[in-house]
Amino acid sequence: MSSSSFSQIRSQALNLENQTESLLSKYSQYIQQLSQSLESSTEENQIKQQINDLLTKRDTLLQKLNRISESSTQELSTSKIQQIQRHSQILKDNRISFNKIDQTIQEERNRNNLLFSIQSDITNHKRRNLPEEQQEIDPDSYILEESQRSDNLNSIANRLLQGAYSTRDELINQRNILSNSNLNIMSNIQSIPGINVLISKINSRKKRDTLILAVIIAVCILLLFFV
């Protein structure tokens, strides 16, 4: 019964991990849109809340898996502990990624708000010092020039960030694929009767062959010196 419950809960954990990865990818895209908005949108806040909810649910599932693993027999505990440790590491990595993305968005948004405030103050100051006939023209030109400079800087930063996050997402996807494949292989091996004994015999035979080969090489070297 515990083995069945463990498999069901682990299946839920894998599903939530995939959902989290997808939402993290969407959330990171808002870094590229910071130059277009000084305030967070409703959709952005919803995605952020969904990620928080998923991380909380995954933490609860991990606690359930730990309880089931502790109540299982020793024969099954090793495989289950390895799977739980893997889920825990992925959860930790996702939390770190989420916090980094969220921090970057907040810092960039604060910086943009500060720049906008400074530009507005400068524009107002220049406008007050201009002749009345120029006050309706020059501020617009100044804002347009500053906007172009800001767009150029943001464009460069966005390209760099996009490349970095694309690389990060690809590495995370590759790592998850390899990890899931490894877990599936380990689970299949554990489910085959006698496979552990067979693997143990193969490893013992490899060690024996390695030892024999080492002795032969040592003897040959000694013969070269003394013959």
Score class of each variant (00 low, 15 high):
Ile156Asp: 05
Ser117Ile: 03
Arg111Gly: 12
Asp151Cys: 06
Glu108Gly: 09
Asn158Ser: 15
Asn129His: 14
Glu133Ile: 15
Glu108Leu: 14
Asn110Pro: 05
Ser150Gly: 05
Gln103Gly: 14
Gln134Val: 06
Glu107Ser: 10
Asp140Asn: 11
Phe98Ile: 02
Asn124Thr: 07
Asn113Ala: 03
Lys126Val: 13
Ile137Leu: 14
Glu108Ser: 10
Asn110Val: 09
Ile101Ala: 00
Arg127Cys: 02
Glu136Ala: 09
Asp138Pro: 01
Ile101Met: 01
Glu133Tyr: 15
Thr104Glu: 10
Ser147Lys: 11
Asn113Tyr: 04
Gln106Gly: 03
Lys126Gly: 11
Ile105Val: 13
Tyr142Phe: 06
Arg111Val: 09
Arg128Lys: 12
Asn112Pro: 00
Ile143Glu: 00
Gln148Gly: 09
Asn129Phe: 11
Gln135Arg: 15
Gln119Arg: 09
Gln135Thr: 14
Asp138Phe: 07
Glu132Met: 15
Leu115Glu: 05
Gln135Glu: 12
Arg111Ala: 13
Glu145Arg: 15
Ile122Lys: 03
Leu114Arg: 12
Arg128Gln: 13
Tyr142Glu: 02
Gln135Trp: 13
Asp121Ala: 11
Asp151Ala: 12
Glu145Ser: 14
Asp102Thr: 07
Phe116Val: 09
Tyr142Ala: 02
Pro131Trp: 11
Leu153Ala: 08
Asn124Glu: 05
Asn110Asp: 09
Glu108Pro: 04
Phe98Asp: 00
Arg109Phe: 01
Asp138Thr: 12
Pro131Ala: 14
Ser141Met: 13
Leu160Ile: 04
Gln106Met: 05
Asp138His: 10
Gln148Trp: 12
Asn154Thr: 07
Phe98Leu: 06
Ser147Val: 06
Thr123Gln: 03
Asp121Asn: 11
Gln134Ala: 12
Ile122Gln: 06
Gln148Pro: 00
Ser141Gly: 15
Phe98Cys: 02
Ile156His: 06
Gln148His: 14
Asp151Trp: 09
His125Gln: 14
Leu144Asn: 02
His125Trp: 13
Asp102Met: 03
Asn99Cys: 03
Ala157Cys: 04
Gln119Ile: 08
Ser155Asn: 10
Ile143Ala: 01
Arg128Met: 12
Asn113Gln: 11
Arg128Asn: 14
Thr104Gln: 11
Asn154Glu: 06
Pro139Tyr: 02
Glu107Tyr: 11
Glu107Cys: 07
Arg109Pro: 01
Leu115Arg: 06
Ser120Gln: 06
Glu132His: 14
Asn154Phe: 05
Asn112Arg: 03
Arg128Ala: 12
Asn124Val: 04
Ala157Gln: 07
Glu146Tyr: 06
Leu153Thr: 07
Tyr142Leu: 08
Lys100Phe: 03
Ile143Phe: 00
Leu160Glu: 02
Ile101Tyr: 00
Glu145Phe: 15
Glu136Ile: 07
Asn129Arg: 15
Glu136Tyr: 05
Ser147Asp: 08
Arg128Leu: 10
Ile156Thr: 04
Thr104Val: 07
Ser155Val: 04
Leu160Pro: 01
Ser117Met: 08
Ser150Thr: 07
Asn129Val: 12
Arg109Val: 01
Glu133Gln: 15
Ser155Gln: 07
Asp121Lys: 13
Asn129Ile: 14
Leu153Phe: 08
Glu133Val: 13
Phe98Ala: 00
Asp102Arg: 05
Thr104Trp: 09
